[in-house]
């Protein structure tokens, strides 16, 4: 295996079973560096399970996952985060007792003050904290959360929570983001704005995206490549326009 490959994420024949249920049944996919790849499929097809397996929340029963030339199979989530692979959640998970600003700030990598003993010695982390605060404000401005940045996280709207999740991932210096339904429950205008932002991040910072999304009409305008999952397997793949005309995909979505 080459140390640095063009594929930043390689999922190789991954299986995840829950008892007798084969939630992910031999999925292989590749995400090239700097691309936006979509992952679609009906409810219960195993997309979120695959995300949970890639991000370390589940250990796969079989198969390998490579990120940026490293084997990350079975690593715990916080180690995978440190490598630069950061996920968001289908239902936004925010820290409810913290403000939007702190939600973003607290997601930063390698904070010295998180050490139990160093936390007592203010001088060891204060300057880093100030630097990170500036960075956090930058990402808040970028995602357009500035008007609500001193609100407590549960007080903001669902769409803003989606943006907050993206801002947190950016704060964690992500190389690649796994977005689980970023446009679900968001109005079409805001959803388009969100995908526009994703495109900007890809072109300006070279970030890579793997996106699960049900709203194909929006997704297909932005992605380079699409994988279609059904019953734990990849049943179709290709460029969005090819997938849109694939009869297999029509069957799945129209009750096959």
């Amino acid at each position: 295996m080459r140390k640095v490959s063009d594929e930043v994420l390689i999922v190789d024949n991954v299986h995840k079973y829950f008892g007798g249920i084969r939630a992910v049944d031999g999925v292989s996919l590749k995400v090239p560096r700097g691309s936006i790849v979509g992952l679609i499929g009906p409810n219960g097809s195993g997309k979120t399970t695959l995300f949970n397996t890639i991000s370390g929340f589940y250990k796969p029963n079989k198969g390998r996952i490579m990120f940026d030339g490293r084997d990350i199979t079975g690593l715990p989530p916080h180690r995978i985060y440190k490598l630069g692979l950061i996920r968001t959640f289908q239902n936004p998970r925010v820290w409810r007792s913290l403000t939007v600003f702190e939600n973003v700030l607290g997601s930063a990598k390698d904070q010295r003050g998180e050490n139990m003993l160093l936390a007592m010695i203010h001088a060891t982390w204060a300057s880093q904290e100030k630097k990170l605060a500036k960075e956090a404000l930058h990402w808040i401005d970028f995602t357009g959360l500035a008007p609500v940045d001193t609100r407590f996280a549960p007080e903001i709207s669902g769409g803003q929570m989606k943006l907050l999740e993206v801002a947190r991932a950016l704060m964690g210096s992500a190389k690649m983001l796994l977005l689980d339904e970023p446009a679900a429950g968001v109005n079409p205008v805001m959803a388009r704005k969100l995908f526009g932002g994703i495109e900007r991040l890809r072109s300006e910072m070279g970030l890579t995206f793997l996106i699960v999304e049900h709203r194909l009409e929006i997704l297909f305008d932005y992605v380079d490549y699409v994988y279609v999952m059904h019953r734990g397997r990849i049943v179709a793949e290709g460029k969005p326009e090819e997938v849109a005309e694939n009869p297999v995909v029509h069957d799945i979505y129209l009750g096959g």
Binding site: S55, G56, F57, P76, P77, H78, Y81, K82, I86, R87, T88, F89, R93, V94, W95, R96, S97, L98, G106, S107, K109, E114, R168, A169, G172
Partner: peptide, 12 residues
């Protein structure tokens, strides 16, 4: 507040 979000964002 949310251990899953904490784990996903790098907290052990």
């Amino acid at each position: 507040d949310d251990e899953y979000a904490a784990a996903a964002l790098g907290k052990n």
